[in-house]
């Protein structure tokens, strides 16, 4: 009985942390993503050289090569830029764009899902039909088309990835809201005169946040890959700004002479996505087992 009581009074957050500390998978994910995150966020101090610093005399140096007093740990590209510095700086942009895009689509999807599930009826039908229509066009194709129309830029990439990613959030939130709004405390709040907005934001939203966090963490890896794909195809963030996608594209034509130019940014990109996916899987299994397979 005492055990039961103890766990009942343990704050939710602390229990969650304890579960995290116990999970081997969670630590593994963290061990992958944290060094990459820290190294890319502090690229300005950690990178040996400026990402766009060109030295034609030092072009296509293999990993470990040195020219004068400069050494190229991961080699240099066709313009003599240091691959390590570009990978670190590029990672910062790729990761931040991914996070920003997921926040945009989360905000959009949560709002539409809340409204859809709360008001039901025609509003719900219209929003869910729009969701169906958007799902009928593969995200990358939609994103490419929109980028071609509005022109590639960092801001547009965030907007496009944000706007095209709202559907899974809206669907999951709508489903939750449909069941949450049947609870008696919602009825009680209505009786106390809570308005629609207060009801949605103060009473219903906190109850669907767990699913939203899980969804965000499982989407992040995919969004980072789509951003890299857009950059790779030349319709994302434009060179010379380094992003992992741009760097991989740079090395594509150099495969026969300089394998390192494409390889290292891809390794970093893959490791980051693997780490994010491991943590996402763990969060899903811990916080919201119903989402398995989504």
């Amino acid at each position: 009985m005492t055990i039961l009581n103890a766990s009942a009074v343990t704050p939710r957050r602390r229990r969650w942390l304890r579960e995290f500390a116990r999970s081997r998978a969670a630590w593994m994910g963290l061990a992958l993503i944290m060094p990459i995150f820290v190294a890319t966020m502090f690229a300005d101090t950690l990178a040996p050289y400026a990402p766009n610093d060109q030295r034609i005399s030092a072009r296509l140096q293999p990993p470990g090569g040195t020219v004068g007093e400069r050494s190229y740990v991961l080699g240099s590209d066709s313009l003599g830029r240091d691959v390590l510095s570009r990978v670190l700086h590029g990672g910062r942009i790729s990761l931040l764009v991914g996070v920003a895009a997921v926040i945009v689509s989360g905000a959009l999807g949560v709002t539409l899902g809340l409204v859809s599930g709360y008001f039901r009826g025609h509003v719900d039908t219209v929003i869910m039909r729009i969701a169906d229509i958007q799902l009928a066009i593969p995200v990358l194709i939609l994103a490419l088309t929109i980028m071609a129309i509005f022109g590639p830029s960092l801001r547009n990439v965030v907007i496009v990835l944000g706007v095209t990613g709202w559907v899974p959030f809206a669907r999951i939130v709508r489903g939750e809201v449909l069941s949450v709004r049947e609870n008696e405390y919602v009825l009680a709040a209505t009786a106390l005169g809570a308005g629609h907005l207060r009801m949605m934001v103060a009473h219903i939203l906190p109850n669907v946040m767990a699913s939203v966090i899980v969804m965000a963490s499982t989407r992040l890896g995919g969004v980072i890959i789509i951003e890299a794909s857009l950059s790779f195809l030349g319709l994302g963030i434009q060179p010379p700004t380094p992003t992992w996608g741009n760097l991989i594209a740079d090395g594509r034509d150099l495969l026969y002479t300089a394998w390192w130019v494409s390889t290292f940014p891809g390794v970093m990109l893959s490791l980051a996505v693997i780490g994010i996916n491991i943590i996402g899987d763990w969060l899903r299994d811990t916080l919201d087992p119903r989402l398995r397979g989504v």
Binding site: G221, A228, S229, F232, S262, T263, G266, S270, V273, N277
Partner: peptide
């Protein structure tokens, strides 16, 4: 987790 375009290049 590995992006298909990079896997292709590798």
């Amino acid at each position: 987790s590995i992006p298909n375009f990079w896997l292709g290049i590798m």
